[in-house]
């Protein structure tokens, strides 16, 4: 299991670094601007109030634009509202490709002919996915924490870390869903496509659901609806976190069951029939 863990993590290192640095860079670009905005709050407020509510909805709570001028509100509107989408792309690629990529390239057939159980292989790789997700969040947090030291925001690195915990939960649930779909669908690209649509729909519907009550019922089914963002700076919403973790873990469990019971594909194989369990 340790060999699978190390091998998978080693292969993911480029992705981890790329997306982690991407999140960090976003924070490093946004955080220094708070000082500028804080100096001219009146102008900032006028600008925010000129925005249509449909636009503001994508940045969080639209009922109180004055909150945007606080450090917490600023981080939420300009940084944490977008991070799940950015890091979510890593989650989709890493989750859908965790096993299906090797399988479709014909490598899994040979790996599985070695003395390793399917469960050990699966668990080793899922642990690497979890570690990789944490690493992306850690690199993102580290970049932001460094810049935060020189900013006028009165937020400590420890507090900031709290706000990254809901980001990790979002990454986990998208990665887990992508993994499950990659086990059910005949090709990794289908899993990537479906979860990609879900990620975008989740962001859009959850944002617009704040304006349109008719959408809120659908939006409540989306992972983004349970995302805390910068609100986590003043305390984590454990209910949402554990709920997302439970759904993510359920997806992983179903993916394991499917992987343990189905044929390993080789290059060129795969059909929609793979959904049906064996009659044996």
């Amino acid at each position: 299991m340790l060999t699978h863990f190390r091998y998978t993590l080693r292969r993911m290192r480029g992705q981890i670094l790329g997306w982690g640095v991407g999140v960090a860079l976003l924070g490093m670009l946004i955080i220094p601007f708070y000082g500028v905005f804080a100096e001219d709050q009146a102008q900032l407020m006028a600008m925010l109030e000129s925005y249509p509510p449909e636009f503001l909805a994508f940045f969080g709570d639209v009922t109180d634009t004055s909150a945007m001028t606080t450090p917490r509100g600023f981080l939420q509107y300009y940084f944490f509202s977008m991070v799940p989408v950015l890091a979510g792309i890593f989650a989709l690629a890493a989750g859908s490709g965790l096993l299906a990529k090797d399988e479709e390239h014909g490598r899994l057939d040979l790996i599985m002919a070695h003395p390793v159980s399917r469960t050990a292989l699966f668990v080793g790789r899922v642990l690497a996915l979890a570690a990789g997700s944490m690493a992306v969040v850690f690199v993102g947090w580290l970049g932001c924490a460094i810049v935060l030291q020189g900013s006028s925001m009165d937020i400590g690195a420890g507090e900031l870390a709290m706000a990254f915990v809901p980001v990790l939960a979002q990454i986990w649930i998208y990665a887990a869903m992508a993994l499950l779909l990659s086990m059910l669908m005949p090709a990794q690209r289908f899993a990537l496509m479906v979860t990609g649509v879900l990620l975008a729909a989740s962001y859009i519907l959850s944002s617009l659901g704040k304006l349109n009550p008719n959408l809120s019922a659908v939006a409540d089914l989306m992972p983004y609806a349970y995302y805390q963002g910068a609100a986590a700076l003043s305390g984590l919403d454990w209910g949402s976190l554990l709920g997302l973790l439970a759904v993510g873990n359920l997806c992983v469990l179903l993916a394991w069951w499917r992987f343990a019971h189905r044929d390993i594909r080789v290059v060129g194989e795969g059909s929609w029939r793979l959904w049906f369990p064996s009659r044996r």
Partner: peptide, 21 residues
């Protein structure tokens, strides 16, 4: 007993695909 079988077996697939990296 797949693991025990694999431990005592060497296998070369017909279409070999290795990790290019």
């Amino acid at each position: 007993d797949a693991v025990a079988v694999h431990a005592r077996t060497g296998y070369l697939p017909g279409e070999l695909h290795l990790d290019d990296n």
